[in-house]
Amino acid sequence: MMLENAHTLEVVRRRGYASRWVVGAVLVAVVGWLAYTVVTSPNLDWVVIGQYFLSTPVMEGVGTTLVLTFATLGIGLVLGALLAMMRQSHNPVAIAAASGYIWFFRGVPLVVQIVFWFNLSLLFPTLGFAQTNAVITPFLAAMLGLGLHEAAYLAEIIRGGFLAVPGGQVDAALTIGMTRAQATRAIVLPQSVRVILPALGNQFILILKGTSLVSVIGGGDLMTRAQQIYGQNYQVIALLLVATGWYLILVTLAGLGQRFLERWAAA
């Protein structure tokens, strides 16, 4: 064929191989069959799911899950920023203390930490004038366990953000008469936020799902409520699906929020 007048020839784009269609068809079949068997299973009562999805205990559980998530994030961010600054400082005691904290709280499984705080009274029966058990409610134990654990992770993420800002900019801030603290606030923090945000969004989702661990001490979150309900009516799968639905909704919203925040920070 003559290609001299190729510019007059129509271009037909490749459609792909037949194998793509085969793989696609198999996937659709497998997923469809799985969904069909679950949805139509005689052991799954959709009426129960509908009945509990917006029920008061479940909604209270969702509320507690959200409160725990934001409280954990708050404790983690404040304590994590402090730990990150300690590790960046020139004080060997501060560096050792922060490193030790991160080593310990990152090394011990979260569920162990939660159960530990819940049973603090066995170690310290009284805190000052108060009975330990009166102070450490399941909710507080959950918050302490989640928050202190999260701080160890966020400390490393925040420190990574600090390291991403060239040290020369701090020098420059000092030469225009800023103190180290002013330079951190005006120069380092705003620039590290951009680096930290994507990891932070990820961490938020991990925290959100991690709150379900507090069900082992009856922390009152979504998972606790689901367990309490199926403990009475034995509709285990139905209530796990109620919880699954809510977790997916919350995680989806968190993902949208993260995208919005990142776009805002990039602007």
Partner: peptide, 29 residues
């Protein structure tokens, strides 16, 4: 910091604050 104010410094690597505009780099101090 107060004594340093009397000396300006220009660096080999410029060290501008990369999140601030040229104008804001100048007005910050």
């Amino acid at each position: 910091a107060r004594a340093r104010l009397r000396m300006g410094m220009v660096f080999q690597q410029f060290n501008l604050f990369s999140h601030l505009s040229a104008l804001r780099n100048i007005t910050l101090g």
